[in-house]
Design a binder for these strands. Structure first.
Length: 565
RNA sequence: UGGGACGUCGCCAAGUCGGUUAAGGCACGGGGUUUUGAUCCCCGCAUUCGCAGGUUCGAAUCCUGCCGUCCCAGCCA
């Protein structure tokens, strides 16, 4: 059941929704994606976005983007804008743009209701005292001395909290539930705290701000959300989510369903860690192409299509998982393979002189833009007396199974003809600086000898027409699969010092040098690349390697090296 | 040592109110095509569902016990 044959892979949440639709519990579904605007979205959020928007779209439902902005100390408008950009970039459009702060008045009124029915009280204990009263995982908590405060007094105090009469942390509103519950969340959770802080949307109107548990379920109910999808760590909150909605007169009672986060290896995904990497200058911002943020992946050149396909393929379950980065990379290859225009680029140039090709002459060869898709047309490739080839494509004393250029050997220049290497020129240190080759005119594309077989085909670029380019090769950010999983070590210790390798003088075909931010290509035989969306300028190209091509030769090389040692 | 959840092929993951030979993708191995050692195309890849018992004509699916992993003691979300 792959998406390729037209069916969507199923999962337990989808099954619940199908059942609710069939039973008539809901006529149409409404989901929501509820980020807190306190950081940038990452690939893990994309899973939630794909799930929420995807399942609603599949069944003709709606999806809201709702900012969970209940903590003014951590949130701001810049993050909100970045999140909206990322969601749209991923390919989704929300039905309504909403904020928990839109409901602050309703949230307050519901709190009044809770107080009036004797189910909430104003706490005077300090945060530390509350903690001490809460008990432990194995011991029940103790009730606060303020727990039985009369309703009128609670109302009075709560109104004065709202009016800003008290300092931060002095009072709090607590739900009156059960201090002996084995579920810590039910031990009289705090519902409102005092924060004499300005909120990015409501300004100085409020001095009290609702906690997540209070705001979230009520916001869901106000919006008529049918299925409130969240991650596994909120499982313990569901009894509280339900208790709140059962004890106040909301228009409906959404169902919270939890699923497992999607983790990737060799990276970190929590907002806190990503923020640290950015703030400590360990990476170059939230959109550093090595980051697992959507902004980073976008800059790196990952496509939204690939990310969506990746999460569709991975499915949704409740089992904890760590997905190999290679799986994501493969999704990108699959997408780009079909769409990326082909071009030749030499990353580590070695000069080759075609001794029997006239000096000063340029011939423009016709080459397909995509070998499997004629509709993508052709491009012109300049051929001249001097060309560049990849240094790694020549070996003076090659091992067995090396199909590329060697002294006396023949190899095909892609899109051109077969050449033979006659002479190896070296400098005083013995380093190869130049190769002299002759070409076989009968083997050029279109000629009778073109079908002659040689083992290897290598890419090349005209020395006269090729343009210089900066190329950034990104590797995994960390050197271990789970940087946070090593006891006694800070995850920063595992940062990969070689995660960014900059090649200053690669050579690309002229049309690539004039590409624009976001344009992507397959550099034949080396990988997929795209123009960096901040640093690349026409005439001064900077390209990021999105991902390499699958490389079975690299595997063979590695095996040979291992067998020798 | 309280509570909540999870454990199906190397990695994801269908299937779980019992019923023929346990989907699919990725990875991997083998073969073919190929002017990218890419792509593409074939073929192979869990007698077994964390472990041990039990119920049953029949269990990954039900019961019991055990083991392992994750989450919870913010006036964060």
């Amino acid at each position: 059941m792959s998406s390729e044959n037209g069916t969507t892979p199923t999962n337990f949440i989808r099954n619940i929704i199908i059942k609710d639709l069939e039973s008539g519990k809901h006529d149409r579904i409404i989901t929501r994606f509820p980020p807190e605007p306190n950081g940038h979205l990452h690939i893990g959020h994309a899973k939630s976005i794909c799930l929420n928007f995807g399942v609603a779209a599949e069944f003709g439902g709606r999806t809201n983007l709702r900012f969970d902005d209940t903590n003014p100390l951590k949130e701001n408008e810049d993050f909100m804008r970045a999140i909206m950009d990322d969601v749209r970039w991923l390919g989704f459009e929300w039905d309504e743009l909403l904020h928990a702060s839109d409901y602050f008045h309703q949230l307050y009124d519901y709190a009044l209701h809770l107080i009036k029915t004797g189910k909430a009280y104003v706490e005077e204990l300090t945060a530390e005292e509350i903690r001490a009263h809460r008990g432990t995982l194995t011991e029940p908590g103790r009730e606060s001395p303020y727990r039985d405060r009369p309703v009128e007094e609670n109302l009075d105090l709560f109104e004065r909290m709202k009016a800003g009469e008290f300092a931060d942390g002095t009072l709090a509103l607590r739900a009156r539930i059960d201090m002996t519950s084995p579920n810590m969340n039910m031990r009289d959770p705090v519902v409102y705290r005092i924060r004499n802080a300005s909120h990015h949307r409501t300004g100085d109107e409020w001095h009290i701000y609702p906690m997540y548990d209070w705001a979230h379920g009520i916001s869901d109910a106000i919006e008529g959300i049918t299925h409130s999808l969240c991650t596994l760590e909120f499982e313990d909150h569901r009894p509280l989510y339900d208790w709140f909605l059962d004890n106040i007169p909301t228009p409906c009672h959404p169902r919270q369903i939890e699923f497992a986060r999607g983790n990737l290896d060799y990276t970190v995904m929590s907002k806190r860690r990503l923020r640290e990497l950015v703030e400590e200058g360990l990476v170059n911002g939230w959109d550093d192409p090595r980051m697992p943020t959507l902004a980073g992946l976008r800059r790196r050149g990952f496509t939204p299509e690939a990310i969506r396909a990746f999460w569709t393929e991975m499915g949704v379950s409740k089992a904890d998982s760590i997905i190999p980065m290679g799986v994501l990379e493969n999704a990108v290859r699959n997408d780009l393979n079909v769409r990326a225009p082909r071009t030749m680029a030499v990353l580590d140039p070695l000069k080759v002189i075609l001794t029997n090709y006239p000096e000063g002459e340029t011939e423009w060869l016709e080459a397909p833009v995509h070998p499997q898709n004629e509709a993508m047309g052709t491009r012109k490739v300049a051929l001249t007396h001097e060309i560049w080839i990849e240094r790694g494509d020549f070996m003076e004393e090659p091992p067995r199974k090396f199909f590329r250029m060697r002294p006396g050997g023949e190899v095909r220049l892609r899109n051109a003809f077969i050449v033979q290497c006659n002479e190896v020129i070296k400098d005083e240190k013995g380093e190869v600086t130049e190769l002299h080759c002759t070409f076989d005119p009968d083997t050029r594309s279109g000629m009778p000898g073109a079908s002659r077989k040689v083992k290897g085909t290598i890419h090349w670029v005209s020395a006269e027409h090729g343009q210089p380019a900066e190329i950034r090769l990104c590797d995994r950010l960390f050197t271990v699969p789970n940087p946070l999983g090593e006891k006694d070590h800070d995850y920063r210790e595992f940062l990969n010092p070689h995660s960014l390798d900059v090649i200053q003088h690669a050579i690309v075909e002229p049309q690539v040098a004039n590409g624009e931010a976001g344009d992507f290509y397959q550099f034949e035989r080396t990988g997929y690349f795209c123009h960096d969306n901040v640093d690349s300028k026409p005439g001064r190209p900077v390209l990021n390697r999105i991902v390499t091509l699958r490389d079975s030769w690299a595997r063979i090389e590695k095996e040979m090296a291992q067998n020798q040692s």
